[in-house]
Computed example of a mutant assay.
Amino acid sequence: MSHACRFGIEEEYFLSDAASRGSVRKVSPKFIAAVQEAFPEEVQREMLQSQIEVATPVCETMGEARRSLAALRTGLASLGLEHGMLLLACGTHPSAVWSRQRATDIARYDQLMRDLQMLGRRNQLCGMHIHVEVPDEDERIRLMGRIMPYLPLILALSTSSPFWQGQRTGLMGYRLSAYAELPRTGLPELFDSPAGYRAYVETLVSAGAIKDASYIWWAVRPSDKHPTLELRVADSCTRLSDTLAIAALYRCLVHHLLCNPHVNAELPAAARAIASENMWRAQRYGIHGGLISPESRSMRTVPDLLDELIDQLSGDAATLGCSDDLAACREIVAMGTSADMQLGVFEEARGRGGQAAGLAAVVDWLATETRADGVTWSREREPRLLGAA
C-alpha cells in the first residue's frame, strides 16, 4: 500500500513580558492586529491571553513544514519584541503564575471557562499537535488505539516543562500532569470497533456534555475538523529541529501502521495500562528513565527503544522523504531535550545569582532557541530591540 501521509503541525507558544520575564496578562490589540496582518491564516488566539498558536498549511514534505514554522517563529518573535514581549516554545512557562492570567474574549473560550472554572484558568500549558492525513474515518479510529504504545516515547523526546509557578517540579514533562485535571484527557480508551468510538461521541453530544468531538482532548484523537489522526501528547518543542524530528517520527509511525495492518491490531486490555505507566515514566524522567516493554517484560532505555524503532521505520522514512529528520530524533537523545537544557541553564545561573536569576536565564534561553533565526536574546539587547521602552 502507498500512503502520502500529508501533514500539518500546530505549535502553541507563551508570550512573556520582556522586562519581567513573567507571562503577559493582557495582549495589546496593536500586537494582535500586526500578527493578523502578517499571518492572516496561520495564527490564532488561545484560551489565555498569554498564549498564541500557529499552524502550518498542509505539507507534503518536511522542507515545507520547516520553512513555514521558521517564518512563523521568527516573524512572531520579532513582532513580539516590538511590543515588549518574548516568544517562548515550551510546555510550561518557567515563572508564570496561573492565578494572574486573563482569558481571551472569544465565544468558545468563554463557554469553556464557564464549564471548566478554575481548571480553565490553570490551563497555562502549551503543546505541539501533529496532524497526519488518514482519509478513511474507520482507519483513523483504529489507528488511535494501535499507535498508543508509542506515545510515551514521543512524549519523552518532547519534554520541555520542568517548571511550574517558578519552581522545579522534579518532572521533565509536568505539562500533562496539569492537563490531566481537565476532563477527557490522557490516553484514549481501547475501543473494540470504530462503531464503539462513534457511539461514545454521539452519547456525550446527545446528552449535552459536549458540543462535538473537538471537546475530547486525548493524547491522540481523530480530528473533528480534518481527515487526520491528531497527535496531542507532545510538549511544545523549544528547538525547531526537535519539532520536525518528532513530526517525522509520528508521520513514519502512521505510515508504518497503515502499511502493516497486523501491527498492534489486537492489543490486549493491559496494553493501555502499560502505556499509562510509561506515560508517567516519560513525564518523570524524560529520555533518562526506562520504558516498560510488554514483549520482554523488562525495562528498556529510551535510546535503545528509539534506535530499534528508527530501524523499523527506515523504509517508511525513505518512502516519505524524511530520513534525515527521523534520524534527528537521535540528536535529541544525544543533546538532551528542552527540559534538560532548561535545567542546566537554571542551575548555572542560580549558582551565580539565585532563584530569580536562574528562572530569568531560562526564559532568555527559551526566547533565543524559539526564534529559529540564530538571533540571541539577552537583557542587554532589550533597549535596542524594543526601542525606547
Rank of each mutant, 00 (worst) to 15 (best):
E11V: 15
Y13V: 11
F14V: 11
S20V: 11
R21H: 15
V24P: 10
R25Q: 15
K26T: 15
I32Y: 01
V35N: 11
V35C: 13
F39L: 06
V43G: 06
Q44N: 12
Q44S: 13
Q51T: 05
A55T: 14
T61K: 03
A65Y: 00
R67C: 04
L72P: 03
L81R: 12
L81A: 13
T92D: 03
S95G: 05
A96H: 09
S99Y: 07
A103F: 14
A103H: 05
M113F: 15
D115Y: 13
M118Q: 06
G120T: 09
N123D: 07
Q124G: 05
C126W: 05
E133L: 01
E139M: 12
R140Y: 07
M144D: 02
I147S: 09
L155G: 03
L155E: 08
A156G: 09
T159W: 01
T159F: 01
S160Y: 10
W164Y: 13
S177M: 06
S177R: 11
L187V: 00
Y200N: 02
K211N: 06
K211M: 08
D212W: 03
R221H: 09
P222D: 00
K225L: 09
C237L: 14
T238Y: 09
L240R: 10
D242S: 15
A245H: 13
C259I: 00
C259G: 14
P268I: 07
A275K: 02
Q283K: 03
H288C: 02
H288P: 01
M299Y: 06
L306H: 11
I310N: 07
D311Y: 04
A318V: 07
R330A: 09
M335K: 13
V345T: 09
E347H: 13
G351P: 05
G351Y: 07
G354S: 08
Q355A: 09
A356P: 00
A360G: 03
A361Y: 02
A361I: 01
L366H: 06
T368W: 04
T370I: 08
T376K: 10
E380L: 12
R381V: 11
E382S: 11
P383M: 12
R384K: 11
